[in-house]
Design a binder for these strands. Structure first.
Length: 459
DNA sequence: CTTAGGG
DNA sequence: CCCTAAG
């Protein structure tokens, strides 16, 4: 099958949905979905390729996984409202589902992958599925998924999402994804039967190809439908996510970090399976899940977002977000400094001087998107504190520290030296206050390397 | 806008 | 990390 067919199908579904449309909608949700979609877009491309030529599935896996992670992250965060009251929509859901199944088949991915649901399949699918399922099925069981009703044209992903919702909702008895999938594949044939005519299809295609903004692709008509005052809460959330989303997307090179999300996802699924009782259990899972997620994330720290420049070796966690449960909050979570980073920082400081955080950032940390100059400064501050503390500590304590964190001697030493020269914390009395000003000579005799420090012309 | 300093 | 004041 070629992707055209799929697309058509998709469009059909869409159309249907539209017609039946239960109207609605949380714009926010839709938007969020879009966002989600946006990221994965690149994958779509790959997907297409897959369809055309069934080869190279493996290659994509990695990428997709990454994306998936990201998606999961997002998805998980988004709390799509569950869908409860809508029986009428069942059909649609089914259709969607079918579609999804088909897709997978085409791709060649095993529908019954079980725990790892969708490495190979399109990321969108997986993301949609996982996210939605979790959300809809587990978390909120009471609300109607308005967003879903929205008929976005582009929405392979969306479709998927819907379907997942539907499935879960419709078949509470089938908590496991596997089952769901099964159904899907079987029904695929039906899908074929559908005819196509929506312009939506075109929209879809375009979207896919262009990976551009989803919104653009949307047909005017559809667009009209979706205007609905978003809840305040949603609004703020949305905006939040919006800004956030932008960042990661921008630097594609930087990977998406969110390994933990994956885990979370799995966990959640598990929970789902274990508690088929739905409603009641759902509530429970809701509460419990977050915790699991956190712990999991912690356990499995991985490295991510390190770009070329950074040192991959020192995997930092990066993820860990204790409270990422709700939207992604501005990566409030710290990214643990790696040793190489520290070294770089020290190096930079010795070269550019202590106050020149921006310079250091630009030269040495340009690749790391996170780590703002302020971060550097803070780190430096901490280093200073640490070094001084270490100086004052007893041997035992020092050993202790060493065990805890491997701060290489040389580094510590370096820091110490720099610390002598730079009065960052204006520490008590600023023993070396003169340094900052007349630093030249002092430095010179102190250590050659530091020379340039502070020298660089302070603007 | 960038730093410094405090939370 | 985050926020705010100051240059």
């Amino acid at each position: 099958m070629n992707r055209e067919e799929y697309l058509r199908k998709c469009s059909n579904m869409k159309c249907q949905r539209v017609d039946e449309s239960y109207v609605p909608a949380l714009q926010d949700e839709v938007m969020e979905v879009e966002h989600l979609l946006a990221e994965p877009r690149n994958d779509h491309a790959s997907l297409d390729g897959c369809l055309d030529s069934h080869t190279t599935l493996n290659d994509k896996d990695d990428l997709e996984l990454e994306v998936l992670d990201g998606l999961l992250d997002d998805v998980e965060i988004d709390d799509l409202e569950g869908t409860d009251g809508f029986s009428g929509a069942c059909e649609e859901y089914l259709l969607d589902f079918e579609f999804a199944g088909k897709f997978e088949e085409v791709l060649g991915s095993d529908p019954f992958e079980g725990s790892l649901l969708q490495n190979s399949s399109s990321e969108s699918h997986s993301s949609g599925l996982s996210g939605s399922s979790i959300v809809g099925g587990v978390l909120e069981s009471t609300k109607v998924p308005i967003a879903q009703s929205e008929c976005k044209n582009d929405s392979l992903d969306e479709t998927v999402t819907y379907e997942s919702h539907g499935t879960f909702r419709n078949n509470p008895s089938q908590p496991s994804k596997v089952n769901c999938r099964y159904n899907i594949s079987l029904d695929i044939q039906h899908l074929q039967g559908l005819d196509n005519d929506c312009q939506v299809a075109s929209g879809l295609l375009t979207c896919k190809k262009e990976k551009g903004l989803v919104e653009k692709c949307q047909p005017a008509a559809l667009r009209e439908k979706r205007f609905r005052k978003p809840t305040q809460r949603y609004i703020e959330e949305f905006s939040d996510s919006r800004s956030k989303e932008k960042v990661p997307t921008a630097d594609t090179k930087a990977k998406h970090s969110s390994d933990s999300s994956c885990n979370v996802f799995h966990i959640r699924i598990k929970a789902l399976k274990e508690s088929p009782s739905e409603k009641s259990s759902n509530e429970n899972s809701d509460l419990i899940l977050p915790e699991l997620q956190v712990s999991k994330g912690r356990l499995k720290k991985e490295e991510l977002e390190y770009d070329e420049e950074s040192f991959p070796s020192e995997s930092e966690d990066g993820c860990s977000t204790t409270k990422r449960s709700r939207r992604n909050d501005r990566r409030k979570h710290q990214k643990m400094w790696t040793l190489p980073e520290v070294m770089k920082l020290v190096e930079g400081i010795s070269e550019y001087g202590v106050g020149r955080w921006t310079d250091i950032k630009r030269f040495l940390f340009s690749s790391s998107s996170y780590r703002t100059p302020i971060d550097l400064r803070d780190k430096w501050r901490n280093l200073l504190r640490a070094s001084s503390a270490q100086k004052n500590k007893t041997e035992a304590e020092q050993n202790d520290e060493l065990a805890l964190r491997p701060l290489p001697f040389n580094v510590v030493h370096r820091v110490r030296e720099l610390a002598k020269i730079h009065p960052y914390p204006r520490q008590r009395g600023s023993k070396k206050s003169r340094v900052s000003q007349a630093g030249s000579f002092v430095i010179a005799k102190d250590s050659p390397s530091k020379r340039s420090v502070r020298r660089k012309k302070c603007t």
